[in-house]
Design a protein around this nucleic acid. Structure first.
Length: 263
DNA sequence: TGACTTGTTCAAAT
DNA sequence: GATTTGAACAAGTC
C-alpha cells in the first residue's frame, strides 16, 4: 500500500517521464474523488499546460504546473501511475488520463477509488488548511518527541495519524515498532525520551532505506513485519510468535514476547 | 459466501 | 477547543 516511500517512487516516476511536455488533452473519469475544483475547470487548467516540477508531503504528491498552481494526487490504497505509448497495453479503467503532445499517455488509475485528485493554489495553504503534520522524513528529533509525548493514544495510532506527522501508514508503523521493541498498543504519552529517540531513528532509517530502493519491498526483507504480515510467524529476535490485533482500526502484527507494552 | 484489507474523513464522545 | 474513537467508503483476495 502506498506509504511515504511509494509516493516518493511516484514522484520520481513523474520526474523521469512526464516533465516539460505540453499536454494535448486531459480526460477525467466520473469520480467523487475530485476535490476543491470541478472536472471542467481542472481539464481547462491542464490542457495546454506542462508539468514543471514535483513535490511530496507525506503521502501527497504535488505536480507544479507551468501555468497556475499544482495538480495534487493521493494514491489511497490502490493508486498507480502509468506512462505509455497509445498502442502499449495500459489499464482500461482510470481516473485521469493526460495525453502529451508527443503522443504518450499519463494515466492515474485507482481500482478501489480511495485516491484523491485536487488542484491547489499553494502547497503550504493546502497542508495548513487540512491540518497535516510535518513530513516524516523532514521532521527533526525535538519536534517529533514534543508531538508524541502529549498524545494519549496507542503509539501505533499516533504514528499513523497524518495530522501529527505525515507519511507513515499501517505497514511501516508495525515495522518501526518491531525494530524498537515497543508494543504497538503502548500509550504514546507513557514512553520515555530514549524510546522516542529510538522510534525516531528507526523511522528515518526504514523510510530512507525504502526510498533508496525505490520502495521495493523485496529489498527490505531484513525489516521484519514489513512484507510478512500474518499471525503465528516465528519472531527473528526471540522465541515468540507474532500476534494479530486490530489497533486504531487497522490490522497490527507484533511479537508480544519482545515488544513490551507501556501503559 | 463472506470476512478481511487499506487511508482518510467525519461525527460523536470525552 | 482539543483529542479520541470508530464507522464508513470500494473492491479485490482468499
Amino acid at each position: 500500500m502506498p506509504e511515504l516511500p511509494e509516493v516518493e517512487r511516484f514522484k520520481n516516476f513523474v520526474d523521469r517521464t512526464s516533465l516539460h511536455q505540453k499536454i494535448a488533452f486531459a480526460k477525467l473519469a466520473e469520480t467523487d474523488r475530485l476535490f476543491d475544483i470541478s472536472a471542467k475547470d481542472l481539464i481547462h487548467i491542464l490542457e495546454g499546460n506542462e508539468f514543471e516540477d514535483t513535490y511530496r508531503h507525506g503521502k501527497f504528491l504535488f505536480i507544479r504546473l507551468k501555468r497556475k498552481g499544482y495538480l495534487m494526487l493521493h494514491f489511497g490504497m490502490t493508486g498507480e501511475l502509468y506512462y505509455r505509448d497509445p498502442d502499449e497495453k495500459s489499464p482500461k479503467v482510470y481516473v485521469l488520463l493526460i495525453r502529451f503532445e508527443n503522443g504518450r499517455n499519463f494515466l492515474f488509475a485507482d481500482s478501489r477509488g480511495f485516491g484523491m485528485i485536487a488542484w491547489v493554489h499553494s502547497i503550504e495553504e493546502f497542508i495548513k488548511k487540512r491540518g497535516y503534520g510535518e513530513d516524516a522524513l523532514l521532521i527533526d528529533q525535538d519536534s517529533f518527541i514534543r508531538l508524541f509525548r502529549k498524545r494519549r493514544v496507542a503509539i501505533k495510532t499516533a504514528l499513523m495519524n497524518q495530522n501529527i506527522i505525515a507519511g507513515i501508514g499501517n505497514e511501516f508503523s508495525d515495522a518501526i515498532l518491531f525494530q524498537t521493541k515497543i508494543h504497538p498498543l503502548s500509550n504514546s504519552g507513557k514512553l520515555t525520551i530514549d524510546q522516542f529517540t529510538d522510534i525516531f531513528h528507526a523511522m528515518k532509517k526504514i523510510l530512507k532505506e525504502s526510498v533508496s530502493h525505490d520502495a521495493d519491498r523485496n529489498k527490505l526483507n531484513h525489516y521484519f513485519l514489513l512484507n510478512q504480515r500474518q499471525a503465528g510467524l516465528a519472531c527473528p529476535r526471540c522465541e515468540g510468535k507474532t500476534e494479530w490485533q486490530t489497533i486504531g482500526g487497522r490490522s497490527s502484527y507484533f511479537c508480544p514476547s519482545c515488544q513490551k507494552s507501556y501503559q
